[in-house]
């Protein structure tokens, strides 16, 4: 009976599927049972010889067997896939405590970092950032800044003179002059950069250091405006509220000129060794732009007034991080620079 054959085949194939040890064996069994030339196909062919009602019954049986076997194959195949994947995943075990290859980010020079901070602050307040040459003319470095011919600052012990008669700028202030020459007021500008003083180098003195210069020219710029910007600047730089005081200070390119002190953070103004018991730490020089400086650059001091300030970036870095030796900043020593 064909029905018996089907049942026998089904039982036999199920047993063999369960017993298949490899995916290849399983495939062979599948081809043998379900392939185009497989046993079920043979039986299907033979069914043509049966009577119609018998054929219908046998057909049902055959389809059921085929479905059952296909499901059994799938199930078994899935078992194989799963265990193969599990084996692969296990083999792919990684020691994630190993270090990752490739370089780590380097760091920017601490002076660059503080310079960027201050630039960003002033840009947000509507200032331009200007640049000027490191080799300057005597005119831009001194004359145009109302620094007289016989002023001590021009002496060889303060200024690096070049054999061509020019000099290495002693401050960033000449960029003020260049700014006034290039742009007309109203004008808000800062100028960061490298400056030079002819000074022997030791732990607290350098012949090369960094400054940032600022200037604002408008109608009616006053000491009150200067105070506003200085307070904003120092609050951002020190990331805390600051108490300031202005006191007289003399710089030929400003009038009146000021020294600006910040109340000592260490002692809160009570007096300590850091502030030499005064409660205040000298921070920067500033003032209202001297009318002679405006006039020299073709700006009418009756119409316009301005303030200017100069801040030492090198000193700021030393204060912020407690750097004890100024020479480290230009040493190129990565043991130092990588800390920033």
């Amino acid at each position: 009976m064909i029905q018996d054959d089907i049942r026998t085949l089904e039982a036999d194939a199920c047993a063999r599927i369960g017993a298949a040890a490899t995916l290849e064996q399983l495939e062979a069994i599948r081809v043998e049972a379900l392939g185009r030339k497989g046993v079920l196909a043979q039986i299907s062919k033979e069914m043509g010889k049966l009577a119609p009602e018998e054929r219908a019954q046998a057909g049902k049986l055959l389809n059921a067997a085929k479905q059952l076997l296909e499901e059994a194959f799938e199930r078994r195949k899935r078992e194989f896939d799963e265990s193969r994947l599990a084996a692969r995943l296990d083999a792919e075990w990684l020691d994630l405590t190993l270090p990752a290859p490739g370089p780590r980010p380097g760091s920017l020079h601490p002076i660059t970092q503080i310079q960027m901070e201050i630039e960003d602050l002033f840009v947000s307040l509507g200032f331009m950032v200007l640049d000027g040459p490191e080799v300057e003319t005597e005119y831009h470095n001194f004359d145009a800044l109302n620094i007289p011919r016989d002023h001590p600052a021009r002496d060889a012990q303060d200024t690096f003179w070049l054999t061509d008669g020019n000099l290495l700028r002693t401050h960033t202030s000449p960029v003020q002059v260049r700014g006034m020459e290039r742009f007309r007021p109203p004008l808000r500008m800062i100028a960061p950069g490298r400056v030079f003083r002819n000074e022997s180098v030791d732990a607290s003195h350098e012949h090369t250091f960094y400054q940032i210069e600022g200037m604002m020219i408008d109608h009616d710029v006053s000491v009150a405006h200067l105070l506003y910007f200085m307070k904003t600047l120092l609050r951002e730089v020190f990331r805390r509220d600051v108490s300031l005081r202005l006191r007289p200070g003399f710089f030929p390119f400003v009038e009146p000129g000021f020294e600006l002190d910040v109340q000592c953070f260490i002692c809160g103004g009570a007096g300590c060794p850091v502030c030499k018991q005064s409660g205040w730490v000298e921070q920067l020089g500033c003032g209202l732009v001297n009318p002679n400086v405006l006039r020299t650059s073709g700006i009418d001091p009756e119409q316009w007034s301005g303030f200017a300030f100069g801040l030492g970036l090198t000193r700021l870095v030393m204060m912020r991080y407690g750097v004890e030796d100024i020479r480290l900043l230009q040493s190129g020593d990565l043991r130092f620079l990588r800390q920033f």
Binding site: P103, G106, I111, E134, G332
Partner: peptide, 11 residues
Amino acid sequence: AQGFTEVHNYS
């Protein structure tokens, strides 16, 4: 970002 650290040298 590529691992270089910035130095400043004299002029």
